[in-house]
Design a protein around this nucleic acid. Structure first.
Length: 277
DNA sequence: AATCATGACAACCGCCGAGAC
DNA sequence: GGTCTCGGCGGTTGTCATGAT
């Protein structure tokens, strides 16, 4: 069928953004807020594709972004989340306030991959490399592949034996033609989270709160209590006055598996009107 | 000093799902 | 129910900086 282009490409700039363009975009969003990306460039006087404006704002101009190097704690959190979610960068970003999916994706590809390889861990499967080779060997029946015991001192549960419960899209997409659609359901994540919890409880690893929702396609539904990726607005619980930034609920401490109390008792609304710049 | 290789990351592209009509 | 538009995501590419030769 084909789709019409998102903008008139003949009259749009490409490549790096100039300071003037950045300022125009910032000024416009200050005045009018986010949204309507398609019409934004024209309204803001920018010769850019709406998508490009959105990306620039989300990844580099948003005021709540944390710049600078990733900390060791962030490294390990990314690795843990990736082991559970695969290349769901927006979901991973949702657990790292101030970080964007693009930033995490780049960081993964340039730093963490190498870091894991140096540890002898396959960055896609999170299994030891030799074991991953066995797993990917079509001659080896899955039943004959025995997951190794979790490493005692590793910061990351690299051989987490329940990972096969949910197959990250990129890791298994070539399994066969009848493989999963690549969409991880909430239920799958929840199940996997439970497995992960059990594993971590037994092994003494820090427990992760992974009450995650795939928010990537629900952002227009305005569903209260969502947890989303890089696109997320801060949410505000009027009954408590608490906010959550980019989908990370402040009332849920890392490690708590209890349902979010605020989510149960308060109505969540997007805090769009009083953004701070 | 010049050239090449590599790393880092900003930006683009194509696809998809949700919602509107 | 079908079609179209929009916003969003993940993969990939392009470009610049830095280091090695």
């Amino acid at each position: 069928m084909g789709r019409s282009p998102c903008c008139e490409k003949a009259h749009t700039n490409k490549g790096a953004w100039t300071k003037e363009e950045d300022q125009r975009l910032i000024d416009y969003i200050r005045k009018h807020g986010e949204g309507c990306w398609r019409s934004l460039p024209k309204s803001a006087g920018l010769l850019r594709c709406g998508k490009s404006c959105r990306l620039r704002w989300i990844n580099y101009l948003r005021p709540d972004l944390k710049r600078g190097n990733f900390t060791e704690e962030e490294d390990e959190l990314i690795i843990k989340l990736h082991s559970l979610l695969g290349n769901k960068w927006s979901l991973i970003a949702g657990r790292l306030p101030g970080r964007t999916d693009n930033e995490i994706k780049n960081y993964w590809n340039t730093h963490i991959k190498r870091k894991l390889l140096n540890r002898g861990i396959d960055p896609q499967t999170h299994h030891p490399i030799n074991e991953s080779a066995a797993l990917s060997d079509p001659k080896t029946p899955p039943s004959q592949v025995t997951p190794a015991a979790p490493p005692q001192n590793a910061a990351v549960p690299s051989t987490f034996p329940y990972l096969n419960a949910v197959k990250p899209k990129t890791e298994y997409s070539s399994d066969n033609g009848a493989a999963s659609s690549g969409t991880t359901t909430d239920e799958e994540i929840r199940q996997n989270s439970d497995c992960y919890h059990s594993y971590n409880t037994n092994s003494g690893h820090e427990e992760l709160n992974l009450e995650l929702t795939l928010g990537s396609r629900s952002t227009r539904s305005g569903e209260p209590g969502r947890v989303t990726g890089a696109d997320s607005e801060p949410w505000w619980a009027p009954e408590t006055g608490e906010t959550e930034t980019r989908g990370v609920c402040l009332c849920c401490n890392l490690g708590s598996r209890e349902p979010c109390r605020i989510r149960q008792t308060a109505k969540w609304v997007p805090q769009k009107t009083d953004r701070k710049f």
